[in-house]
């Protein structure tokens, strides 16, 4: 029996070394330790062995079984690791580039708009929106623009033909013409007509001017405007808001200055200058950045607010201009060309 076992073990170990696949392994395993395996057959002969020889023989068989199992485990480990190696393939070269696209990007105008909205949100201003196709009432009349003011001229404003109909843009005055809004101030009027004071709103959006496109002008551009209506709003409050906005946006060493100006819908009116010489490409002490003022009592009366009770301020500026200042961009047309070498620079 011992001789038989040794021969069996020698045969098995020679066979196991050559096993290449999991199927071969399972077959080999069955041949020795399966129900019809050779070792199993030997074990079945135990019953025929005299009782006194059984312990010694049992030990021998168990040893052989243990050895066989050890060889099987080794073969299985070898096969498994070969399988994994085959699955893995060659080692990666970490210096090769990923073929996947890089990160997506937001447009710089979106970035500036959202940053302004975040800053204003902290001061309690909520975003309001209005249509880009407007009527003469919302764009001009309600903002005290005289009937023959040059801004209303077909020279400067895009109009639609008299028969044009816009289903979801309401007219205030029968027969008034549709146009492309020249400023986001029209949203202030819609907001005041729809809501009740006090109000703190910011309206970012696209506006249109009938103008030659060049490095600083564009047929459409974007504005952001704030409107605050409450009791006892003062010029000083307006200045405080602007100081807060620009210190938040451009850094604490940014200063603002008011210059008296004229707008039909504010009184007093100011142009806002910025002193921000730490920004790129800024070579002037004061840079004009926007217009503002205290809401004219006539505008309040026009939207049905009692101008002896309600006061307010409004402030507006161009987003392109702000983005150009922040990023040091010198041509407005880059915003609309969409060259990815430009767009990828801002996020």
């Amino acid at each position: 029996m011992q001789v038989t076992l040794s021969a069996l073990l020698a045969k098995a170990s020679a066979e196991f070394v050559g096993l290449q696949s999991r199927a071969d392994f399972e077959a080999a395993k069955a041949r020795y330790v399966g129900p019809n395996g050779e070792l199993t057959a030997l074990m079945k002969q135990m019953g025929a062995v005299p009782k006194e020889q059984r312990p010694a023989l049992g030990k021998l068989i168990n040893e052989a079984k243990g050895q066989l199992q050890g060889q099987l485990d080794a073969a299985l480990a070898r096969i498994s690791s070969a399988e994994i190696a085959a699955q893995l393939g060659a080692a990666i070269d970490p210096t090769l580039p990923s073929p996947d696209a890089g990160p997506g990007t937001s447009h710089p105008l979106t970035l500036v708009r959202e940053e302004m909205c975040r800053i204003l949100r902290k001061a309690g201003f909520a975003v309001v929106e209005g249509p880009e196709v407007e009527t003469e009432y919302y764009c001009f009349d309600a903002l005290s623009t005289p009937a023959d003011h040059p801004a209303r001229d077909a020279q400067d404003t895009f109009y639609f033909p008299a028969q044009a109909r816009f289903g979801n843009i309401s007219k205030k005055v029968a027969g008034e013409k549709y146009l492309l809004r020249t400023h986001t101030s029209s949203v202030q009027i819609r907001t005041m007509l729809k809501g009740k004071p006090p109000l703190r709103v910011v309206s970012p959006g696209r506006v249109y001017r009938r103008d030659t496109s060049d490095a600083t002008h564009s047929a459409n551009f974007h504005q952001i405007e704030c409107l605050y209506v409450d009791k006892n709003v003062t010029v000083r409050d307006l200045k405080a808001l602007l100081d807060y906005i620009f210190a938040s946006l451009l850094g604490k060493n940014t200063k603002t200055r008011f210059r008296p100006h004229y707008f039909g819908y504010t009184e007093p009116s100011f142009e806002v200058d910025l002193s921000a010489q730490h920004l790129p490409k800024v070579n002037k002490e004061w840079i004009e950045i926007g217009g503002c003022g205290m809401v004219d009592p006539a505008v309040f009366e026009g939207v049905g607010y009692d101008s002896t009770v309600w006061t307010g301020y409004a402030f507006g500026m161009g987003l392109e201009r702000l983005a150009m200042l922040m990023y040091g961009i010198d041509d407005i047309r880059y915003f609309y060309q969409n060259d990815l070498r430009f767009l990828k620079q801002f996020t």
Binding site: G124, A126, R200, R236, A240, R257, F258, F270
Partner: peptide, 23 residues
């Protein structure tokens, strides 16, 4: 107009109104 004294911007105690659904 350059002599308007500085002040702290004051927001409302609670900002009412949410941003427009469009935004």
């Amino acid at each position: 107009t350059d002599r308007v004294p500085p002040a702290l911007a004051v927001g409302p105690a609670l900002a009412d109104g949410d941003d427009d659904p469009i935004a």
